[in-house]
């Protein structure tokens, strides 16, 4: 049982960072949703805010690490141009485009994934910053809290699209 360097980076990019992002999103969403003065005491709000700050920054940092490793480490292997003597299976983009039955994984899936994922860290960072600055005051700022939930959810959807297509594309044409 062993992994090549490329497979290892693909796992770090897609599974390790992806799993942390998902966990952080679930925590951040639940924390913001239930941060209501009628549900939690002042002491409870303070305690929740601490967890919320950690959760939202974890989400933001994980999102940045995911898009940076994806774009600058994994993606160049995916889009590398084929070399004459080597099998096309080592060049995922060209492999997908060589067959009309698989070309949409690149022209639709990868083209969408590689762009939309960058929206996630931008939105997640804005949420983490606001949670940090406003702290326990957020419990009394319903409109702001709902806005943060919406931004966090959009970030999650953008990352989810990228993650889902990443899994499908890796299945159709793995980076070897």
């Amino acid at each position: 049982m062993n992994l090549t360097d490329r497979e290892l980076w693909t796992v770090i990019h897609g599974m390790v960072l992806g799993a942390i992002f998902l966990l952080a999103f679930a925590g951040g969403f639940a924390g913001l949703w239930s941060l209501k003065p009628e549900l939690v005491t002042e002491t409870g709000i303070k305690e929740r805010i601490r967890r919320l700050i950690i959760g939202t920054w974890t989400m933001a940092i994980t999102a940045w690490l995911t898009v940076i490793t994806g774009t600058y480490i994994v993606y160049p292997w995916y889009r590398a141009k084929p070399i004459a003597d080597l099998s096309l299976s080592q060049f995922p983009r060209s492999l997908l485009l060589s067959n009309p039955n698989t070309s949409a994984w690149h022209t639709f899936g990868m083209e969408w994934k590689e762009h939309v994922c960058w929206i996630a860290p931008i939105l997640a960072t804005a949420v983490a910053y606001i949670v940090t600055i406003y702290g326990k005051n957020l419990a009394h700022e319903k409109r702001l809290r709902i806005t943060l939930i919406a931004l966090l959810t959009i970030a999650f959807i953008a990352a989810g699209i990228a993650g889902l297509f990443g899994a499908f594309i890796t299945k159709a044409a793995p980076i070897l």
Binding site: I122, A126, I133, Y134, N137, T147
Partner: peptide, 25 residues
């Protein structure tokens, strides 16, 4: 008074700039 004493400007700047970044992408 439970209202935040932190001005809206901090949140406004963070939120609008995130929108600008997304739009520019």
């Amino acid at each position: 008074n439970q209202k935040s004493k932190i001005p809206d400007g901090h949140a406004g700047a963070a939120i609008l700039s995130a929108g600008i970044g997304s739009f520019v992408l």
